[in-house]
Nucleic acid binder design. Structure first.
Length: 477
RNA sequence: GGCGGCAUAGCCAAGUGGUAAGGCAGAGCUCUGCAAAAGCUCCAUUCCCCAGUUCGAAUCUGGGUGCCGCCUCCA
C-alpha cells in the first residue's frame, strides 16, 4: 500500500512517488539567535519519525536542514550583546543540536549554513537577474514578483489581495510592494560580503533556494517546516528556485501545526516559550516524543505544565508492558510448530497490529492513530500475560510481540524508555536472587522483612510488584 | 480586507458517506498478607449551531458562531 501525504501545494492527499531510490528531504531549520524552544521540537521530532518510517518501508533518505545564520534578528541581538553575529549564531545552532540530541532526534545528513554558501547564493541571484526575475537598485537586489505568474500558488494568495506595507514601510525602490530582497546592501557594522552589487548580505529566503539546490538538486521529494513558513518564506522559495531552474522545486510540501502555549503560538519574538532543555531536564525524552506524536502533525498542539504529567500515565503503562516483556522472555529456541489457541490468537494480533500501524502511518503519517494501534496490542499482550502461560510457544509469541514493540514504538517512534540498569549483566541475576529471598520470607509470613526489602529498593527507584505469576521488578522513570 | 486551519465525552485525541479508535480521569469487580501492577465490566443514540444533499453525514454543500495561524521575524 502506498504512502499518502497531504500536500500544501495541492491542498489534498497524494500518493508518494519517488523517481530514485533516495527520498530528498529539505526541512527549514531555525534562525539561531536564542534558545531552542519546544515549538522547534515539533517539526524535528515529526521529521525524525517520518525519516525512520520511510527507511523501515525500504526507502533511503537524504535530509538537509539549514541554519539561517545571517539574519536581521541575529544582527540585532549581536548589536545588543556585543557578541559577533556569526559567533552568536554558532552558539545557538549548537544549542539547537544539543536540544535535538536531548530528544533523541537523529541528526540530519547535513546542516548547511548561509554564511558558508555566499557564492552559491550570489550565483543564483545572478541567474535570476539574467532571466529578468530580479533587479538591482542602489546596492539592493529585489525579486520581481510580477515576473513569476505562479506567485502565490502555495499560499493561495493573489498579489493584489496581500496587504503589503500595513505594518512596515515599503522600500520606495521596489517596483511592486510585494517584491522582496534577495541581496541587502550592507549597513555599517553589519556582517557583509562582496558581490556584483557591492558589499552586502543575502536576504531571507534565498539561502534555502540556493542550498536545497546544491544538496538535493533542482527537484526533490519533501519540503517541510512549520505552517507559519508557508507565506512568505516558502512561497518566495518557490518563486526563486522555479524561476532560476525552470523546474518545480519540491513534489510535496508538508507543514506542521503550531505548538501553543496558553492558546497562543509559542514563539521567540513573543517571549512565550519554554525551552527544550528545560523540559528535557524534567521529563524523559521518550515521554516528550510521545506527547508530540499523540496528535497529528498538522494539528495545533497545546502545551501546559500539567500536560506531560497527564499523558505520562498512559506512557508509563505502555513502557511497563514493553520493559516487562523484555525481562519475561528468553531467546526463542527449539522448533515451534503450528500454534493454536491463545498463542495463535496473540500471534495474529501481533501481525494485525503491524499491518494497522503501517496503514496509519501510510495515511499522512498519522502517529496518533499508530499509537492507538499499539495500545490495542498492549491490551491483548497484557491480557495474555495475565493468564500466566510460560510454555515454549508462549515465549515465542511474546518474543514476537516484544520485537514488534521494539521496532515500531522503539526504533521508529522513539517512545520506549528501556530500563538501563538491565544493561549490566549482573543486575538481573542479583535482582532475581533478592526476589527469591523475599518470596521465601513471604512464604514464611515474615512480612516485615519482606516489606523492608521492598521499601529499601523503592528508595533506589526499583519497584517490586507481586503478581499472580510471581514477583516482578522495574525501574521507576 | 485577503488566505488557511480547527471545533468529537470531564480532559487529550483518531475518524473525509455506512452508523463514534485509543489514552487519561471516574465507577464496580477479580487477584492479593499489605502495596503495586494487571485483567474483566461500565463510562458520547452522538460529533459547535441552523438549513440542505443523500436510503444513509461527525464526515459533502450553504449560512452562522467561536478559536488559532499567515499576509512583519517566526518551526
Amino acid at each position: 500500500m502506498a504512502i499518502r501525504v497531504y500536500n500544501t501545494l495541492t491542498r489534498q492527499k497524494e500518493e508518494l512517488k519517488s523517481d530514485g531510490e533516495r527520498i530528498g528531504i529539505y526541512v527549514c531549520g531555525v534562525t539561531p539567535y536564542s534558545e531552542t524552544h519546544l515549538g522547534h521540537a515539533r517539526p524535528s521530532v515529526v521529521w525524525d519519525v517520518i525519516k525512520k518510517y520511510l527507511r523501515y518501508r525500504g526507502y533511503q533518505t537524504y535530509h538537509v536542514q539549514n541554519f539561517t545564520d545571517i539574519d536581521d534578528k541575529i544582527i540585532n541581538r549581536s548589536q545588543e550583546t556585543g557578541i559577533d553575529a556569526l559567533e552568536l549564531a554558532a552558539h545557538y545552532a549548537q544549542d539547537y543540536l544539543e536540544s535535538m540530541d536531548a530528544l533523541g532526534v537523529e541528526r540530519a545528513d547535513i546542516y548547511p549554513k548561509v554564511s558558508e554558501h555566499i557564492p552559491e547564493i550570489i550565483a543564483m541571484i545572478e541567474t535570476l537577474v539574467e532571466r529578468g526575475h530580479a533587479y538591482a537598485v542602489s546596492g539592493n537586489v529585489f525579486y520581481d514578483v510580477t515576473s513569476f505568474p505562479e506567485y502565490g500558488k502555495l499560499s493561495n494568495q493573489k498579489l493584489d489581495q496581500l496587504q503589503a506595507g500595513t505594518r512596515f514601510e515599503v522600500d520606495p525602490d521596489k517596483k511592486h510592494p510585494m517584491d522582496f530582497a534577495l541581496w541587502k546592501k550592507a549597513k555599517p557594522d553589519e556582517p557583509a560580503w562582496d558581490s556584483p552589487w557591492g558589499r552586502g548580505r543575502p536576504g531571507w529566503h534565498i539561502e534555502c533556494s540556493a542550498m536545497s539546490n546544491k544538496y538535493l538538486g533542482p527537484e526533490f521529494e519533501f519540503h517541510g517546516g512549520g505552517c507559519d513558513l508557508i507565506f512568505p518564506h516558502h512561497e518566495n522559495e518557490i518563486a526563486q528556485s522555479e524561476a532560476a531552474t525552470g523546474r518545480p522545486l519540491a513534489k510535496y510540501w508538508l507543514h506542521n501545526g503550531m505548538l501553543n502555549l496558553k492558546h497562543e503560538k509559542m514563539s521567540k519574538s513573543q517571549g512565550n516559550f519554554i525551552t527544550v532543555k528545560d523540559v528535557a531536564a524534567k521529563y524523559p525524552k521518550e515521554l516528550i516524543r510521545f506527547y508530540i506524536l499523540s496528535s497529528h502533525y498538522r494539528s495545533e498542539l497545546e502545551y501546559h505544565d500539567q500536560k506531560l504529567e497527564e499523558v505520562g500515565r498512559g506512557w508509563q503503562r505502555f513502557n511497563d508492558c514493553v520493559n516487562g516483556l523484555a525481562k519475561l522472555i528468553d531467546e526463542p529456541q527449539g522448533e515451534i510448530g503450528k500454534l493454536s489457541g491463545d498463542e495463535a490468537v496473540l500471534l495474529d494480533a501481533v501481525r494485525t497490529a503491524e499491518a494497522k500501524f503501517i496503514e496509519a502511518m501510510n495515511d499522512d503519517f498519522n502517529t496518533a492513530m499508530a499509537i492507538g494501534v499499539l495500545f490495542e496490542l498492549l491490551h491483548q499482550v497484557n491480557s495474555y500475560i495475565a493468564k500466566g502461560n510460560n510454555s515454549l510457544e508462549a515465549n515465542y509469541v511474546l518474543h514476537e510481540a516484544y520485537q514488534l514493540f521494539s521496532k515500531l514504538a522503539g526504533d521508529i517512534l522513539g517512545i520506549i524508555r528501556p530500563d538501563e540498569v538491565q544493561i549490566s549483566g549482573l543486575t538481573q541475576p542479583l535482582m532475581e536472587l533478592l526476589l527469591e529471598l523475599r518470596t521465601e520470607l513471604r512464604s514464611q509470613k515474615q512480612y516485615q522483612l519482606a516489606d523492608y526489602i521492598r521499601d529499601e529498593l523503592a528508595k533506589l527507584n526499583i519497584v517490586i510488584e507481586d503478581t499472580p505469576n510471581g514477583p516482578r521488578w522495574k525501574i521507576r522513570s
